[in-house]
């Protein structure tokens, strides 16, 4: 929780009105982004993303499982978020439950696409090994290590980086068993298949303070928000998910304007993230 005096609140709001925020940024400017890949050796893919003082670790684990009866031609993806007490003492014990659940739901909505699979970040049919029998289950976990606002955007960015770092082992299926038997699978530990992460969207949260909206709000600025809209946008400028936070109602025209601003900002953020991913991968390869 942020405790601010009246003067400080006034200073933050005034700065946003004049397009010069307390840390010197403009309204639509992100904090410094730093990206590191391969931070958890046991996982199939992992990443650490820092956005200002917000720090996220994301990991992707792949396990062989059975596809659901309703979708025999699709794999499964689940997303969980946990907030560590190292970020804020109030996250200790069950204190982070509500926030974690809210973040998980928002990420699932933004990354998993519609029921038919339109707009999904990961093509679920690419996770199938033997139709109706064996598929990959992806477990995506996000851990909030340090929290200074804009958790959702940072989590989505960390997941995008972790997915681009992910290698799924190549699986050889022996095709001799009868169709109703369990197929024998041989998981290779040398050959890995890379993910196509070009369709993974980024999430841009626009926080409305007074009459203006800002991107990448820190926790002090978030405490002054009236409402926030998180928009997930992919490389083609299609909107893949949207969530509204904060109590105040919004005029429809404001929401449409926020969507178009988010769309504009997202393309810059995607290219920034792409170049950071390439740099991080080059660095990891050197080590």
């Amino acid at each position: 929780m942020v405790g601010l005096s009246e003067g400080e609140k006034h200073f933050i709001r005034g700065g946003i009105t004049q397009d010069l925020r307390t840390d010197g940024r403009k309204r639509l400017q992100f904090r410094a982004l730093s990206v590191q890949t391969g931070v958890i050796p046991q996982a199939n893919g992992s990443a650490r993303v820092r956005l200002g003082a917000t720090e996220i670790i994301a990991s992707v684990k792949a396990e062989l499982g059975k596809p659901s009866i309703l979708h025999p031609d699709k794999g499964k993806v689940s997303i969980f978020v946990d907030c560590s007490p190292t970020a804020e003492p109030m996250f200790e014990g069950r204190g982070s439950e509500e926030l974690s659940a809210e973040l998980s739901v928002s990420l699932q909505r933004c990354l998993l696409g519609g029921k038919s699979g339109a707009g999904a970040a990961i093509d679920l049919s690419s996770l199938i090994v033997v139709e109706g029998k064996v598929c990959w289950d992806l477990y995506i976990d996000g851990l909030v290590v340090s929290s200074d606002g804009n958790l959702l955007d940072a989590l989505a960015a960390a997941i995008k980086v972790a997915l681009s770092d992910t290698g799924i082992p190549k699986v050889n299926v022996s095709v001799n068993a009868a169709s109703d038997e369990e197929p024998e699978v041989d998981v290779s530990d040398e050959e890995f298949l890379q993910f196509d992460t070009s369709s993974v969207p980024v999430i841009i949260t626009l926080t409305k303070v007074g009459r203006h909206y800002i991107v990448d709000a820190n926790s002090e600025e978030e405490s002054q928000m009236s409402s926030a809209v998180s928009v997930s946008v992919n490389r083609h400028g299609q909107i893949c998910g949207l969530t509204k936070r904060g109590g105040a109602g919004l005029d429809p025209s404001v929401i449409f304007d926020m969507i178009s601003v988010a769309k504009h900002v997202s393309q810059q953020f995607i290219s920034l993230l792409d170049s950071e991913i390439a740099a991080a991968e080059a660095e990891e390869a050197e080590c």
Binding site: V229, C240, K244, G249
Partner: peptide, 30 residues
Amino acid sequence: EAWQDGSLVVAFMPARKEITQLTLNGEWSD
């Protein structure tokens, strides 16, 4: 709903013409 490409839920206050909640999933153009 089981076969939709995307869905959008709006909660609205008719007299004030304000949207109190908006969620969306799937793939949409603006």
